[in-house]
Amino acid sequence: MALVGPRVVLPVLVAALVAAPLWVNPYVRFVLTLVFVYAILALGLNLLLGYAGQFAFANAALFGWGAYTTALLQLRAGLPYPLALLGAALVTAGVGALVGLPALRLHGLYLAIVTLAFGEVTYWAMIHWGSLTGGASGLKAPGPSIPGLGLGSEQTVYYLALIAAVLLFAAAWASSIRGSAAPSWRCATARSRRRPSPST
C-alpha cells in the first residue's frame, strides 16, 4: 500500500478536519464549512455533467430552493432544524425531479438552456417575492443546535456539513461510480458526449 495513496490520505484528511475546529479561528472554520458545502454541490454536478453527461445547469438554483426551504420551514412552520433539513431535502429532490422531466425530451444544449432558464426564473422569484423570501436582503434562519453536545451553532453546522460531505461522497462512489448503477451512467454519458455532425 502506497504511503501517499487515497487509503492513507483520506482518513488522515478527515481526522484533521474533525479536529480542525479546536485550533483554527472562526473565520477559517467558516471557510472550511463553505468548502464542504461546495464539495457537496460539485459532487451533484459531477454526477449529472461528468458521469451522466447531461447539460443540467439547475444545480445552483436547487441549492437556493434547499436553503430557502430550510429557513422558511423553521421561520414560518416553526419546525425544528432536523425536520426542516429533511423537509428541504425532500422538497428540493421533488423540484429537481420536475426539472429533470424535460431531460427525457431534450438533449444537449437544449437541456442546457431550459435548466439555465429555470435558474433565472428561480433567482427572479427569490428577489421579487419579497413577502416570502425577504427580497434582496434575504432571510436570517436560526442555526442548528443539538442538545447535550455543548457545541455552538456554527460548530454544529461545520460538523453537519463535514459528515454530509463524507457520507454523500461515499454514497455516490458506492452507487454511481463503482456500484451497480455505473453501467447505466456510462451508457448515458457515451450517448450524450457525442457531438452532432456540423450543419446537417
Binding site: 424535460p102 425530451r105 431534450l106 437544449y110 438552456i113 431550459v114 439555465l116 432558464a117 429555470f118 433565472e120 426564473v121
Partner: peptide, 9 residues
C-alpha cells in the same frame, strides 16, 4: 425564459 421553457417543451 418562461417563453423558452414553454416553447422547447
Amino acid at each position: 425564459f418562461l417563453l423558452i421553457i414553454v416553447v422547447l417543451l
